[in-house]
Design a protein around this nucleic acid. Structure first.
Length: 565
DNA sequence: AAAGTATGGAACC
DNA sequence: TGGTTCCCCTACTT
């Protein structure tokens, strides 16, 4: 019985690091019976002594577990040599990492798809080439409105879906100036190499990743979590932010001076029952309107020019529950999308906003971390929920009782991590490519890594996995550049910039990539040493890295190229 | 080097 | 309904 079924990810390639590649051709026939699956077993044999790790549910039953637990609570401290599972507290097995492979607790349902009957390691969604696609139970029904809408949009939608092109290797630049975890990222809309970042402490970072040491940190704009950043497209020297300190602010990026457009806690701190935090934010460009929402379910409208509130708060999600995200439709800004902790995403007509007046409610299995209209036509919605599913909802005029696609993907909630959000690639004309970090790790040649996944949401295919053997942390925050083939990621307190190896690419390639901008591989060398960084201010530039890179063995991730049909 | 900690959501009563 | 307890792949610092 193979321990690791994921042939492609775990098969023994000789290179030190692993690549990830589109999983198209290999294992097409039978994803569940991968033949190259022996090394996991070896590992198990080595350590298989003490507790029978080989589980199979034959361990104690539930009652025993309960008893055990009760004993443990009451009993005086005794030293037991028995192995105790830290997940279920049961004995006879142990969950946790063994080397770079995570051994599941056999008594818990799958950590990936959450369904009983198997553990994470054997989850069909973990090995399937289509990354856990669940087609909709039925197609959305077309209404006449739908028809008209589609006709309008038809011209904008390319007839032929471009092929994904995978650049060979990626350079990866790192900087660390945040002292708390990164919570949001945004590329500057016009200055090509500038990345903005917000953190849990309220700091705002500006990093010119093309230049050496070109970074700025504004520490006094917000006093806690920066939840959203948005540029004013009419004046890109100005950035809007919303924060858990309850303010929405407008900041001049050159000077760092900022003023608030909204302050929900003018009285200061009077306990958590009254403290309001702002989570969602977007700008209705046509109307010069700033929309923000709080942790009690309310939406606020602010006139960006007059800096005054318009109307009172409007309840758009369950009272007392957090509204997590807001997004104005790119084609029709008056169509507003919200999502929240009440497990719903909702569509609204911003011209006629009042409680209970949503045009549609999109039900999710758990808290919805994010929901975005597709960037060009606004015709699709991509949502990320904490039930480990990415959902795609077709046509905002269709029947939205159920999503048109569900993709099982590991992006669990963890209180220590910034919530994961799947985001559209703004450059993909077919509006099918999404990027999102992955929670559970995979054993890549002995290193547990958490890749950043590129998923074709129209098929559910995992198109590329971006990783680097030196980056062992999870990357919950990801952002694709609006024009360039550049990916930014935030992992804990560090920021990463990934771009195709070298800057000089043949023109042709550039053109090709323009359509897809997928990164399939990661190069090891350019990431420099991460562990040895001093805590405070150490930072790297690409130049630094190239120098340091010489100390590395020069091994790059290598792997199979995606076979083109 | 093991222990401590920050800290959100939901299950549970 | 609300307070309490628990928590499965964290990323640090002490």
């Amino acid at each position: 019985m193979p321990t690791l079924k994921r042939g492609k990810a775990s098969s023994s390639s000789s290179s030190s690091s692993r690549v990830l590649v589109p999983m198209e051709t290999d294992s097409e026939e039978s994803p569940f019976s991968s033949s190259s699956s022996s090394e996991g077993e070896e590992e198990e044999e080595e350590e298989g002594e003490g507790g029978r790790v080989s589980d199979d549910e034959d361990e104690g039953n539930g009652e025993e577990a309960v008893e055990d637990r009760a004993k443990k609570r009451k009993a005086p401290i005794t030293i037991s040599l028995k192995k105790v599972c830290k997940v279920c507290k049961g004995t006879g097995h142990e969950a946790g990492f063994r080397g770079a492979t995570y051994i599941d607790c056999p008594r818990k349902p799958c950590f990936l798809c959450k369904r009983p009957g198997h553990t994470t390691m054997f989850c069909p969604h973990r090995v399937a080439t289509e990354h856990g696609v669940i087609p909709a139970p039925r197609r959305n029904t077309d209404t006449s409105l739908d028809y008209i809408f589609k006709r309008q949009l038809k011209a904008k939608i390319p007839m032929i879906k471009p092929t994904f092109v995978i650049p060979g290797q990626l350079d990866c630049g790192v900087i660390r100036f945040h002292s708390r975890r990164v919570t949001c990222l945004e590329f500057h809309p016009t200055r090509n190499n500038v990345l903005l970042s917000g953190d849990k402490k309220g700091q705002l970072g500006i990093w010119d990743y093309a230049k050496l040491h070109e970074k700025t940190v504004y520490g006094s704009i917000h006093s806690c979590i920066v939840n959203n950043m948005k540029f004013n497209l009419e004046n890109d020297g100005v950035l809007y932010t919303s924060s858990s300190d309850g303010t929405a602010r407008c900041t001049d990026l050159e000077t760092g001076t900022s003023f608030f457009l909204l302050d929900l806690n003018p009285e200061g701190w009077n306990g958590p029952a009254t403290w309001r935090m702002l989570y969602g934010m977007d700008i209705n460009v046509e109307k010069g309107l700033l929309l923000v929402a709080d942790n009690f379910g309310y939406l606020y409208l602010v006139d960006g020019r007059l800096k005054t509130r318009i109307g009172g708060p409007i309840l758009i999600h369950k009272k007392g529950s957090k509204v997590v995200g807001l997004h104005c439709n790119p084609v029709q800004p008056d169509v507003l999308l919200s999502c929240g902790n009440d497990h719903f995403a909702r569509i609204w007509d911003a011209r006629r906003l009042e409680a209970e007046s949503s045009l549609a409610s999109l039900a999710h299995g758990r808290v919805v971390n994010a929901a975005y209209f597709s960037p060009l036509t606004g015709n699709k919605i991509l949502s990320t929920a904490q039930d480990n599913r990415i959902r795609v909802w077709d046509s905002i005029f269709g029947n939205l009782e159920s999503p048109s696609r569900e993709i099982v993907h590991s992006h669990d909630f963890n209180r220590h991590l910034t919530p994961f959000r799947a985001e559209w690639d703004p450059k993909d004309p077919s509006e099918s490519l999404a990027v999102i970090g992955r929670y559970i790790s995979e054993n890549y040649d002995g290193v547990a890594l958490h890749p950043i996944d590129f998923i074709d949401v129209s098929t559910g295919k995992l198109v590329a996995e971006v990783m680097n053997t030196d980056i062992t942390t999870i990357s919950p925050v990801t952002k694709l550049h609006p024009r360039d083939d550049v990916l930014a990621s935030g992992s804990s307190r560090s920021l990463f910039i990934w771009k195709p190896k070298g800057d000089k690419c043949p023109e042709q390639q550039l053109l090709e990539r323009k359509s897809m901008n997928i990164f399939g591989r990661v190069e090891r060398k350019s990431c420099g040493k991460l562990d040895g960084e001093s805590d405070d201010d150490s930072d790297f530039s690409f130049k630094d890295k190239k120098r340091k890179a010489k100390n590395f063995d020069g091994k790059y991730l290598s792997g199979r190229k995606k076979a083109k049909p």
